[in-house]
Design a binder for these strands. Structure first.
Lengths: 342, 342
DNA sequence: ATGAAAGCGCTAACAC
DNA sequence: GTGTTAGCGCTTTCAT
């Protein structure tokens, strides 16, 4: 029946013949300091009027907004939704709202998003696959906002909590597996080489070769972008240029999926002729046909974990292990041959 | 060098020997009322101190938060990220931040998200594939928050702007195409039958049959959930129960994709033996192999459009055509046979 | 061009 | 148990 947008604590107070303080106590479920009977009366008119406390006002009064910011490169990239869900699920449980922003891998946009969140006085920020350089990030720390990083490491001063997959080990596992299977000309297909993760995986690829005492052929190293279409294109190039290769590993499932589809289309049999191993284990990889063998990290859980840690930081609780790195697992599905356990 | 989290307008004012009002004028780029020289001075210390205006305080003063809320069933469902991107891209351009919430198709959770956004005093709400009943929605309208609906229609009083694909026509196109191809036993695989979109598509399926004067076989109508795994299961059931069918249409691409993969795996040839048509045209459908024939709506653009309209509502600008319904297109890819245009 | 002051809706001492 | 009061950081009207 209300004709107003929303009532204020003062109006409620007036209607109940109590002070604003009392109403405040009631809406905050403050057990102390308000009589059973008064509380009931206040509660009732709050109910009737559909009163909703103003979180903004509360925010300026307490300097805690009840919101946290999440910035990702692109919500609509297959990789990020699961991450976001991990964060929102965790924060939901804590009573926090989540503001989201896309950077499109552009440091300038990332900075804008971050700053806009500062303006909103978010209580914490989760930065996923950030592209900012350490100079900016260290500048940014001046705002003293609790900061969680997922998918990227820096010196620990640049974030309060973080988690990251061990890209080097992940890529090594992939390469080692293929090498042990007898492969000697393994294509390595990666996305943007400027991203730290790319460089680390590349390092893993090289290390595995080195350890096995077999040479790396530079012409087998491909760079493009993190997309299925790019994978398709890479596969076409490999075939067209009659490149000599006996296996493929990638820095991203999307690339691997594109490669698999394109190779299959060209009559290459997978895994009989060529084995392919992706990286990331996005949901898509499990549901496509053939299911992709890949390097797996528990994204959802990782994101949840950092969000949970970030919450502790916000609360001022101690966080014993703020910076975790988790070792990815090789998941063998249908794009690699079945073989006995070593 | 700052040791504070953030400065206030008062501090800036003091340091510059001006009043808060002047600083306020400067940070709001108010062209009037502040001398060139004073403005420069204020701007300089703002710069030096990395001052950032407090959007919360601004919000309580102006009763405009600069945020809009978006609620979807599940960010990590393949269907929603593109929608969200359309909204965030549009709102970003307007200078708005976006708060996001998941409902998991649960009216209770949806209500909680909506209410939480009211608390945050969002300037508008975009509800995607909402599951609230009209009672709640009409109750909710009491808060007078500009509301945009995407993917669902109600009487126009329940939202300020909306867009929706014509589910009936979409399903009819699908069914008509198959019928004209000579199919007489078309499986219809749908998700949750309680969702309005499901019912509408079902209606399209029946109407097409009716118009063609061919009977609907109830045993060909399947219900489950909107997922690939469910599609797989449905396909197995069809085969196991030796159901007699000659084509399949679905209410969701995810279901169709699951069906296609499973059928292929069981040796059914697609499209030679069985043709399959999905619904929605999510990105996934284009990139998998075989690419899925489906009913297409431009999600990203639809979302952007409603967001843009919502912005107008917020501004108080007139919105000539607040409620749009767009006709989906049949997109023929590899899960239907090539045939001459009719 | 600039300032003083009231007010937005709430919280948090402190007093009674 | 309840009220008073002084902020929180900003905008905005009205003087000057």
């Amino acid at each position: 029946m209300a004709e107003k947008l929303t009532y204020s604590i003062a109006e409620i107070a007036a209607m109940c013949n109590v002070s604003k303080a009392t109403v405040s106590r009631v809406i905050n479920n403050n057990p102390q300091g308000v009589g059973k009977e008064t509380r009931a009366r206040v509660l009732k008119t709050i109910q009737q009027l559909n009163y909703r406390p103003n979180a903004l006002a509360r925010g300026v009064a307490t300097s805690r907004s009840g919101m946290i910011g999440v910035v990702v490169p692109d919500v609509s990239n297959f990789f990020y939704p699961k991450l976001i869900r991990g964060i929102t699920d965790c924060m939901d449980k804590k009573g926090y709202s989540v503001i989201i922003g896309n950077s499109d891998y552009d440091p300038k946009r990332e900075a804008e998003q971050l700053l806009s969140m500062i303006d909103k006085r978010v209580d914490g920020i989760m930065l996923c696959s950030g592209v900012s350089n350490r100079e900016f990030l260290s500048e940014f720390r001046k705002y003293h906002v609790p900061m969680g990083l997922v998918g990227r490491v820096f010196d620990s001063s640049l974030s309060d909590v973080s988690i990251t997959g061990d890209n080097i080990k992940g890529a090594m596992k992939s390469a080692e597996y293929l090498i042990q299977s007898g492969k000697r000309r393994i294509v390595y297909a990666e996305g943007n080489p400027d991203i730290s993760g790319s460089r680390q995986r590349m390092e893993g690829y090289r290390k595995a070769h080195e350890a096995a005492g077999i040479p790396v052929h530079e012409e087998l190293i491909l760079h493009g972008e993190y997309s299925i279409d790019c994978g398709r294109y890479m596969a076409m190039q490999l075939l067209e240029n009659k490149v000599d290769f006996d296996a493929i590993m990638t820095g991203s499932d999307l690339i691997a999926i594109g490669i698999v589809f394109q190779l299959l289309k060209s009559g290459v049999r997978i895994p009989e002729d060529i084995e392919v191993i992706g990286f990331d284990d996005i949901e898509l990889s499990r549901v496509i046909d053939p299911p992709l063998s890949t390097i797996s990290k528990p994204h959802y859980d990782m994101a949840w974990h950092v969000a949970d840690q970030l919450f502790k930081v916000i609360q001022g609780d101690p966080v014993p292990l703020p910076h975790a790195t988790i070792e990815p697992q090789l998941v063998l599905r249908a794009t690699t041959k079945k073989r006995r356990e070593t």
